[in-house]
Computed example of a mutant assay.
Amino acid sequence: MEITLWDYSNIISKWLIYIGIAAAIGGPFIAALINATVNKKSLLNYIVISSVLGFAAVIINFFIQVGAFSETGLSGMFDTGLISFLWQSAVGDSVLWRLLAFTVLGFALLWSNLNAKYGTFSFKDATFTFLYAAAVFSFAYSFTFIGHSAVIGGAAKWLLAFHIITVSWWVGALYPLWLSCKLLPPPVLYKLMCLFGKIAIFMVGILIACGIGLLYLFLENPLALLTTTYGLAMLLKLIFVGSILLIAAYHKFRLVEEIQQQAGIKKLQKSIKNEMLIAVVILTITAVLSSILGPE
């Protein structure tokens, strides 16, 4: 299979979209768990910058797909006929819902900013919670229009949507948790990590259930994991996902008890940093799977 410049561009833009969605979902969630008196300026910057980047990547990715369809070079990205055609297709529906999600989240951040001082930014306002939930649903819904699951239809597209949202929640929460090691005193950090660990158990259950369901629908048989290009790429992703879950288990059952001391906090920071590096790889593989590889 020959990989074109359009394919590389598609992969990179999708990777940026996933980063933006992850920050938009995981960032506010962790911020809501942190005490309101903590200065959250750095956390807010993470959410805003990543979301703006994701918003721009959604638009850029749409024009990349137009250019790929046109096959007439860079000028093909602005073919008005193809732009109109794709905008009225499932691709356009997906783009619309993602842009809507980022916009709704932007309004949620603006609303909370108008009702709280910048340094003590509140993520627990009822209106913010409603808008945040609406944005998460919009992100999830956007994944039901395109991709391999949309072709299969039925439960597959919603399994993928829940899977992506769960992964995004996890990945997007990592940087805020890393920041928390700097922002919070040991006792407060301990409570945050314990609470996150309890919530994560439920989220991991959803992640695993959706993952198994997707593998069953996408692969003809278990051997396809070893005999097809798509299967091998999926297997590689599963290995990295397994690695990140093992690190999370280490945090919950061993390391969390050590963060009452400064040395334990440093170990936690380093471990979360390793998780973030693995998460970057997982999102990269996901971008490749959704762009140039598919079930046979």
Rank of each mutant, 00 (worst) to 15 (best):
Y18H: 14
Y18A: 14
I19H: 09
I19S: 10
G20C: 12
G20A: 13
A22F: 09
A22T: 10
A23S: 13
A23Y: 02
I25G: 09
I25N: 09
I25D: 08
I25R: 09
I25F: 10
I25T: 11
G26P: 15
G26N: 15
G26Q: 11
G27Q: 10
G27L: 11
G27S: 13
P28E: 10
P28G: 11
P28S: 12
P28W: 08
P28D: 11
P28I: 10
F29Y: 14
F29W: 13
I30E: 07
I30R: 08
I30K: 07
A31V: 04
A32I: 07
A32T: 09
L33C: 07
I34N: 06
I34M: 11
I34P: 06
I34E: 05
I34S: 07
N35E: 15
N35A: 13
N35D: 15
N35L: 12
N35P: 06
N35C: 09
N35Y: 12
A36H: 12
A36W: 08
A36G: 09
A36C: 07
A36Q: 14
A36E: 15
A36I: 13
T37M: 05
T37F: 13
V38T: 15
V38H: 14
V38S: 13
V38I: 15
N39H: 12
N39S: 15
N39D: 15
N39M: 13
N39G: 13
N39C: 14
N39W: 13
N39K: 14
N39F: 10
K40R: 15
K40I: 14
K40N: 13
K40L: 15
K41G: 09
K41I: 15
K41H: 14
S42I: 12
S42E: 08
S42D: 12
S42C: 06
S42K: 14
L43N: 08
L43D: 06
L43S: 08
L43E: 08
L44K: 11
L44S: 10
L44A: 12
N45A: 12
N45S: 10
N45C: 05
Y46R: 05
Y46F: 12
Y46K: 04
I47R: 00
I47G: 00
I47E: 00
I47F: 00
V48R: 04
V48T: 07
V48I: 13
V48M: 04
I49Q: 02
I49D: 00
I49M: 02
I49P: 00
I49S: 02
S50Y: 00
S50M: 01
S51L: 01
S51P: 02
S51T: 04
S51I: 03
V52K: 03
V52P: 01
V52W: 03
L53W: 01
L53V: 07
G54P: 05
G54V: 06
G54H: 05
G54I: 05
G54E: 05
F55R: 01
F55K: 02
F55V: 04
F55T: 05
A56F: 09
A56M: 10
A57I: 10
A57H: 06
V58A: 03
V58F: 01
I59C: 04
I59R: 03
I59N: 04
I60R: 02
I60A: 06
I60E: 02
I60H: 01
N61P: 04
N61A: 04
N61I: 02
F62M: 01
F62D: 00
F62Y: 05
F63G: 00
F63L: 08
I64E: 06
Q65L: 11
G67T: 02
G67M: 03
G67S: 05
G67N: 04
G67L: 03
